[in-house]
Design a protein around this nucleic acid. Structure first.
Lengths: 152, 152
DNA sequence: GTTGAAACCGGTTGTCT
DNA sequence: AGACAACCGGTTTCAAC
């Protein structure tokens, strides 16, 4: 169950590039192919490695705008959160949504093509949700860092 | 340069699962292997597909805490932003960092093991940066949605 | 665009130490 | 647990249509 140094190295390498061959991985961690193969399968079966995905460049496919959205719900109704969560999961523009502590209830990361698209999204998909009581938007002007790699 | 329906389908499929074989992809988009192979290579060469990575479950490797951090810089000094950007890129705990519009300058997504680790990170790595003038933290209590897939 | 063939390479498995 | 070898299935390239 516990990860040793080799496992951590493998996870670091695979988070960087999932196409590395078992042979290459084996060379980098100074083991032979078999144990590396077994370790990777184990990490997959344990659910530590969740999936392998392609990351695409959003700007090159016309998704130049990224916006963080802060939302507060009307907490009068008990079912507000459930309803809101389910609605959000259906929206492809929302890549991340978390319930957070602080001055608002939710923090969303939204990706759209431009300001016009954001306006449409905002007015016809977000503000339309009954449970929303307050919203505010913060537009991304520069991405200083963006990675999926959890350092180990 | 423009993406057609087939390209978008391929990107959707590969964003969901990068291990799909060319044969499987070909079946799903109703083409033969050759053009699908060529299209994928083209998307890679154009930089539309940036990389293939393994996504790992942070909770299963002891990174149970996620925090959004809002930072305002002291703008007296011209070089503040450059310095801060470079410092942030070196911190493995910071997965995302953006310059944003609104009441603060930066929004960071930070991943650590627990509150103690966050406290250490906060005090010895963030507040230590000269350019920082104000900080506030918002702790993630529930991840409603978390995906890398940009819907096409 | 499609099909089919060939070469090559990596994953996978079994067996050995 | 790690090393070695054989097999299978995939990718990749090519030719022809």
């Amino acid at each position: 169950m516990e990860l040793d140094t080799i496992d951590r190295q493998l996870l670091n390498l695979l988070q960087e590039n999932a196409l590395l061959t078992v042979r290459e991985l084996a060379e980098r961690v100074h083991l032979s192919i078999t144990p590396v193969h077994d370790r990777i399968k184990k990490l997959e079966n344990q659910g530590i490695i969740e999936k392998y995905v392609a990351l695409i460049n959003r700007k090159r496919i016309g998704r130049g705008m990224m916006v963080y959205c802060f939302i507060t719900l009307d907490k009068q109704r008990q079912e507000s959160f459930q309803e809101f969560n389910e609605a959000i999961r259906q929206l492809p523009e929302v890549l991340e949504c978390s319930v957070v502590s602080g001055n608002f209830d939710y923090l969303l990361k939204v990706i759209v093509s431009d300001m016009e698209a954001y306006n449409t999204f905002y007015q016809s998909k977000l503000s339309v949700l009954h449970s929303v009581s307050h919203m505010s938007s913060s537009f991304v002007m520069e991405e200083v860092k963006s990675t999926t790699q959890i350092g180990l």
